[in-house]
Amino acid sequence: MAGSALLRRGREETRRRPGGRGRGGRSRWRAWLYLLPALVVYLGFAVYSGLNTLLFSFLHWDGFQTPAWAGPDNYARVLTDPLLSGAILNALVLIVFFSLIPIAVGLLLTGLLLGRVRRGMTFYRTVFFLPQVLPLVAVGTTWRWLYADDGMINQALEAVGAGFLTRAWLGDHDLALFALGLIGTWCMSGLCMVLFLSGAQRIDPSLNEAAAIDGAGPVRRFMNVTLPGLRREIGIAAVITTIAALAGFDLVFVTTNGGPAGQTNVPALLVYRLAFNEGSIGAASALAVVLTLLVIVLVGAIRLLTREER
């Protein structure tokens, strides 16, 4: 994805440059020369491995012995296995927690901080962005303890007299997925806020002033000036967080490992198990391809929705 975006941006640049199109054969050569180092890395580590995965998905292979051609077998297995449909459904639920709620929280925080906080902005930005900097394995382990039977969340509930609600959250059959999702919300909200804050600061202040003179209150100004101005940032935030929700692995692996009883299985976790526990590189690759297609479709839809009209 990153690569195609790069190419597209490059194309826009070319178009804007006057005379860039005429007899620009040589300059085009030079452009490719500059692109070459990045291109080699991109082709070698992204395209090559991606295509390899595609090839593996048509093999019966344990990663080791002579592989046999499998045709569509792996795809048939992956698409008919109820484990997989469950995992995809879970990933879609996680989009709510990893993407929708963080964007809403990010917008709210932006609205609260913008224009009001003059000092200490760096402090807020750092605090809310911190979860992004921490390794997810550390985040997951910490949250597992917070959610534990005798963890801080249950202690807090008991302190406010809600002891009847306490449970081992990540071990609860019905609530584990939501508990897991909230960790994602915690991680992603700060990222959204930082994106939106920087976007909002780029909006021409005269627009806000004009709206204020016309009598618009803070809420009105946020809805009619800031929000439309953040369209692109919201699009980017949605893409990043949706990919994190769909392709996420580490957080689930350390907190629940798909449990209890598969309630928090996600596709990436099953890819890992198929490849490294079961030794079915073919089935793992097929699932990875399906997951990639799902990401492309959803991200495509988001980009379409948040596209700026010209």
């Binding site: 071990g171 449990g259 598969g262 198929l274 079961e278």
Partner: peptide, 21 residues
Amino acid sequence: VTPGMIDRLTPGAQGLTSGTL
């Protein structure tokens, strides 16, 4: 028994523990 058995046993025992299996 099989390399993938652990991934059936763990969720299975969890299902028995949560009373859903």
